[in-house]
């Protein structure tokens, strides 16, 4: 067989994915990037190569603040989710009997089965002044007056963490169960304590799963509109919320597109920063 036939076959296999990516990612992104260089004259769209929208993002305090708020919330959510998900994945992988692991995983993904919007509104009711949390705290005598929990950054982070802990648990669990028990046995035989085994053997080997889950959390969290909109009470605005405001009444697609490109840039930087450890095949 000549070399041409396998090359053609290879191209044939790759073509659907390539066409898909081209049609549903590259072309829309190119349109969005071009739109970010357009401007509004009154209410009319003027195509061009203007950097005005990017200059606005850099010089307008509320737009810069939106980027900062998005980064802060995303960082907090990612760290808390990793810290909670790792032990949970560990327990499911090594402490739960094998026959119960499937059920444990089903329970872990249960939050994915409900509507995202309904889940966010449910949290709003739970965290309200007259919600379950405040009522329980008052009944137990821990507080006299209800705490302000809903419509805060805490509420936004809680809603996010509830969702992303489950996602991270799955990615970390997938990594842990692929780990041969011989690594732990060898470390123990060589005199390592349980902590040393975890610190020097298990953690480095499961880092790809942690980083992969953390990266997915970062991407999904920083681009999310629903959770901060419902749970944050607009007390601080994230980039997706500011984008939606631009689109709603004024139809300022150029500025909305520029903000979206900035968001894409942040995600790309996050990817480059974590690429060394990213192993999507471990999912």
């Amino acid at each position: 067989m000549s070399g041409r036939a396998p090359r053609r076959t290879g191209r044939g296999f790759v073509a659907p994915a390539l066409i898909w990516t081209l049609a549903f990612f590259m072309v829309p992104f190119a349109v969005m990037a071009a739109m970010s260089l357009a401007t509004l004259d009154g209410r009319s769209l003027v195509w061009g190569l203007s950097a005005d929208n990017y200059a606005r993002i850099l010089t307008t305090p509320y737009l810069r603040r939106a980027i900062a708020v998005s980064l802060e919330i995303t960082a907090i959510v990612t760290v808390i989710s990793v810290v909670l998900a790792y032990p949970l994945a560990w327990i499911i992988a090594f402490r739960v009997p094998e026959r119960w692991q499937r059920l444990a995983l089903v329970l872990a993904v249960l939050p994915f089965w409900t509507s995202y919007v309904v889940r966010s509104y449910s949290w709003l009711l739970v965290l309200a002044r007259e919600g379950v949390v405040n009522q329980a705290l008052i009944a137990s005598g821990l507080i006299a007056e209800p705490l302000t929990l809903a419509n805060t950054r805490t509420a936004t982070v809680t809603g996010f963490v509830h969702f992303f802990v489950m996602l991270l648990t799955l990615t970390i669990y997938a990594n842990l169960v692929q780990l041969s028990p011989n690594y732990r046995r060898a470390a123990t035989d060589l005199g390592a304590s349980a902590f040393q085994t975890f610190r020097h053997v298990i953690l480095p080997l499961t880092l790809p799963g942690v980083v992969t889950g953390a990266f997915l959390t970062f991407v999904l969290c920083i681009g999310d509109y629903v959770t901060p909109q419902i749970l944050g009470g607009n007390n601080e605005l994230t980039v997706p919320q500011v984008i939606m405001v631009q689109l709603g009444r004024r139809a300022d697609f150029p500025l909305a597109s520029a903000l979206s490109v900035v968001l894409m840039g942040i995600v790309t930087l996050a990817y480059l920063g974590s690429a060394r450890w990213l192993r999507l095949d471990r999912l």
Binding site: Y121, L124, L125, A128, R129, E130, G131, A150, N151, Q229, I230, G233
Partner: peptide, 10 residues
């Protein structure tokens, strides 16, 4: 959100 906030006593 406004309706929910008023109805739930938030």
């Amino acid at each position: 959100s406004s309706q929910t906030a008023l109805a739930t006593g938030e």
